[in-house]
Design a binder for these strands. Structure first.
Lengths: 338, 338
DNA sequence: GTCCCTGATGTAAGCGCTTACAATTCACTT
DNA sequence: AAGTGAATTGTAAGCGCTTACATCAGGGAC
């Protein structure tokens, strides 16, 4: 059914080796035969067989990404950046999803099937015990996105710095009694953001009241979702707590909180100023002040790192960290003279 | 480097055929040797070679999805549904992105490489001339998502119906002079939504004023984006047009429009009622009335269709159409007695 | 005209697996 | 004790491609 190099060879009156050479741009083929082979191949609609090729070559042109959740904008956008860059090459992208940390290992196992992928991209998954061992034994190139491990290339955002900037900015606009809407503390990015925020506050002699810290790991994706934000803020309000500022560890949480506030007597930004994290497109349209992560750029860079590691496996491990940038909008006020 | 069935065979003192049988759950292996082989395999950390396997079997367990844009929530969510269902099988998902219609053919070409995928899922791409021919000649199973062609299985939303429902609802809440925020008219879903809306209006003797129809194909993804909505609404306002209702062909457009309205003297829903399309998670948090598409379910169903077609290629073509459901929120008012 | 070199092409041996078919074993029959 | 058939295992031929090596023709150099 499928037509093979044998068919082409026969029709063009050459050997299969020659056909193969033509398709591999091997210079040791005369122009005339090359043209003849191409002619026949076009006519017959020949397509090299992907598996046969990678088997014979002992390598694939596929990379795998293991992502917690496609429908999370952050991942989707990083993948987009990745794909845009990848489109310039002949690589293909295999996407595995691992909504919970337990599932990562299983998906990784699939991605690591021998001969399946030339490299793996692991998103937001702490590399621990089992994982590390598994990664080690198949010496496939790996790059970590949105997480860190000394032994692997990684790409991430400086979450602590982001937290600090959030604190500085909130303080500069007059906030004195902030609250934090925190995702699952087991999430490394979330805890770094909180840590940075606390540090930023403390530099100005302000501390985060314990009851002003709302931790939520509810719902999917470690509490990085609208509902967690909504419920968290509601809980705060019900406890009669009225902070004058709010740092949410993600935009979606912030948006949930904004909705909760709409049902209250507190106005944004008069009574409470809000700052998120990520800069989703929607943030612009709800006027949310936030810290932007260069998602698409992270994806592009991640792909470059992976390529680099694939071609030069012995290179020293590289960690690239992006600084989040502050995007002031209308959920915060203008600076206040200090 | 990688260990093969030969290694296992030797270590276990059996032939490669036996090893292969063990890994294919062939019943013609005694329990004792099966156990022995497994033991050795585990110990050596054996992994079947994906390419070799699919070459020998003349089939893959990979399917390809060609998607306009991963960072568009609709696609991400459909893919999520798809993946969830797929996780129950041993299939892998290859994702190609084709931001513009011109790119579809090239990506399809890659996905159709012989031996690469067992089936292809084509998103929002009208199957025309070149495509159709290409699809025909490689007789790989295909399912169309969010588009239609008589010759291929497809899965979509009843966009006309959605438009009608939007019209009916808006009229029932008192709207008499609606506007429409339309994406690129070349987009089949968008034009169907408009068509349905018009039809819904006309049934009640109301017509859409021509200058109340704002068409925008600006920006990425055929104008299905926030900015298109923002600019569209702004243009309307600048023209001094003040409709009492707005149907946007997508939630993101509606959200952009809402932001534009915030800068005007028109309140939602007092002066203008708004209805979107899709029901993104964010819609809930901005209170947007909309028509829900069961995205995740569409993905799951798409995968089932593809599997079905893969196992029974001769089945008659099936088109499954989901009816969008109305989700009333606060951008529209309660029903009004007529 | 012979020799050698070069460039173009062919031959054949894999890559790691599946699977039809052959071979072997073993428990029973007869 | 030989024969039978079922259960188990082995042998070997692919799957479609790449590529090291062999072959071959043609063009100087002598």
């Amino acid at each position: 059914m499928g037509i093979t190099i044998y068919d082409i060879a026969e029709a063009a009156g050459v050997s299969i080796a020659t056909v193969s050479r033509v398709f591999n741009d091997n210079p040791r083929v005369s122009e005339s035969t090359r043209a003849a082979v191409m002619e026949v191949a076009d006519q017959l609609g020949y397509q090299p067989h992907a598996s046969a090729r990678s088997l014979a070559r002992q390598q694939t042109e596929t990379i795998s990404a293991i992502v917690p959740m496609l429908s999370n904008y952050f991942y989707a956008e990083v993948l987009k950046g990745l794909q845009d860059r990848m489109a310039e090459t002949s690589f293909d992208l295999l996407v595995y999803s691992a909504p919970t940390l337990d599932e990562v290992e299983g998906q990784l196992e699939k991605a690591l099937h021998r001969g399946r992928s030339a490299g793996v991209m692991l998103f937001s998954a702490p590399v621990i015990d089992g994982l590390e061992q598994r990664l080690q034994q198949s010496d496939i190139p790996v790059v970590l996105v949105d997480c860190y491990h000394p032994a692997y290339d990684s790409i991430s955002t400086d979450n602590r710095r982001g937290g600090e900037v959030a604190a500085d900015y909130l303080l500069s606009t007059g906030v004195r009694n902030p609250a934090v809407l925190m995702a699952n503390p087991h999430s490394v990015p979330a805890s770094h953001r909180l840590e940075g925020f606390r540090h930023g506050l403390s530099r100005q002699g302000i501390t985060l009241e314990e009851d002003h810290l709302i931790v939520s790991s509810m719902g999917y994706h470690d509490g990085f979702n609208e509902q967690a934000g909504y419920e968290g803020m509601t809980k705060l309000l019900e406890a009669g707590i009225k902070p004058d500022g709010l740092f949410a560890t993600s935009d979606v949480q912030a948006i949930g909180a904004m909705e909760a506030l709409r049902h209250s007597d507190m106005n944004i930004p008069e009574h409470i100023q809000i700052i998120g994290f990520d800069d989703l497109p929607i943030a612009r349209y709800v006027g949310l002040t936030t810290l932007r992560q260069p998602m698409s750029e992270m994806g592009a860079r991640a792909f470059e790192l992976l390529m680099e590691r694939m071609t030069r496996p012995a290179n020293t491990v590289a960690h690239t960290v992006f600084a989040p940038t502050l995007i002031p909008r209308t959920t915060t006020r203008e600076h206040v003279a200090v």
